[in-house]
Simulated assay, not measured.
Amino acid sequence: MMEIANVSFPEVFILLGFSERPSLEPILFIFVLGIYVVTVLGNGVIIVVSCMDVHLHTPMYFFLVNLSFLDISFTTSIVPQLLVNLWGPQKTISYGGCVIQFYISHWLGATECVLLAVMSYDRYAAICRPLHYTVIMHPKLCCSLAFASWLGGLTTSMVGSTLTMLLPLCGNNRIDHFFCEMPLIMQLACVDTSFNEVEMYVASFIFVVLPLGLILVSYSRIAWAVLTIRSAEGWRKAFNTCSSHVAVVALFYGSIIFMYLQPAKRNSHEEGKLVALFYTVVTPMLNPLIYTLRNKTVKKALRHIVLENCGFGGTHIF
């Protein structure tokens, strides 16, 4: 039984990553490390500012804190192992480490899809139902929606990842990617994976297609409401309210759609790695930059906190 288990489930996986282009690896190491530091600091700032400034204790920033914490967790589940593999000749990850990685990345990826849909509903309520906004988006509902996002992502990860983990691999342990992704583990299986594929497609529909549909419906209603606004000031407020979230949604779903709808060419898998690098490493860094650079409220709160901590709390410099 022990010999069968060893053959079915390898002790380590080999993450080929970008090993076909070794000259690119040192550049990628510096690039990824720099982006990771900015990601952690940027999202950390969003969390700290949103918690410390009472003016940001609103549903929008409550969900933004969840998104920032999710981004830090998601990129941390992938980047440290990627940096280790880029730095040295060894490209391995333990079986347990691989399992943990695709459990967590699957969980957080599904959670982000739902959370972005929840945030779009919040923007819909703010623009289309402004007089009832505080009644609709009351704290209990906000906490319930955030909890449902995290629980839904965890549930689909537990089901899909567990089914994948039970597949015998018969010694196959070479993954042509830079992290352990569930579909790639399924490709290594030496048994029929039809049931796993059906489960994956159903989960993708529920946690990717449906949230995207809800986002599109919310923003179609928002666009209709904005068209009825007569004043330029109203247009500006609506744009400021939604532009950051639209940019984040476009980055997240745009990279996913590009990755999974690209033609099956020989070089498409290498392109897929670069796109995966974008949405796993670059996108979590861009989210806080989008919300801070395009949001006057966050910039004002950040400036106020910095001045207070520097001893200028009672001085109106600006």
Rank of each mutant, 00 (worst) to 15 (best):
N196G: 01
M52I: 05
H57R: 11
C98K: 02
L108D: 09
L116V: 02
M285L: 08
V209A: 08
E270C: 02
P211N: 10
H269I: 02
F205E: 08
A264Y: 15
T156M: 08
V226C: 06
L82A: 07
W87V: 02
C170N: 14
E112F: 00
V208M: 10
C170K: 08
N43Y: 14
G34C: 05
M200T: 12
A225H: 10
V45A: 11
P59T: 00
S157M: 01
F239P: 08
W150K: 04
E271R: 05
V248T: 09
S8W: 15
M165F: 12
I78V: 14
H177E: 12
L70V: 01
P130C: 05
L302F: 15
G42Q: 04
Y95V: 00
T162C: 03
A225T: 00
P80C: 08
S194G: 05
L116Q: 00
N66V: 03
I100P: 05
L16N: 13
S94C: 04
L214W: 11
K265D: 14
N85W: 13
P80T: 03
V298S: 11
P263C: 05
P89M: 12
L16H: 12
A5M: 09
R294Q: 10
I136C: 10
V249L: 11
H316C: 02
S157I: 00
L33V: 04
R129Y: 15
V7R: 13
I215G: 02
L274E: 07
F9T: 04
K265W: 14
N85K: 09
H55L: 04
H269F: 10
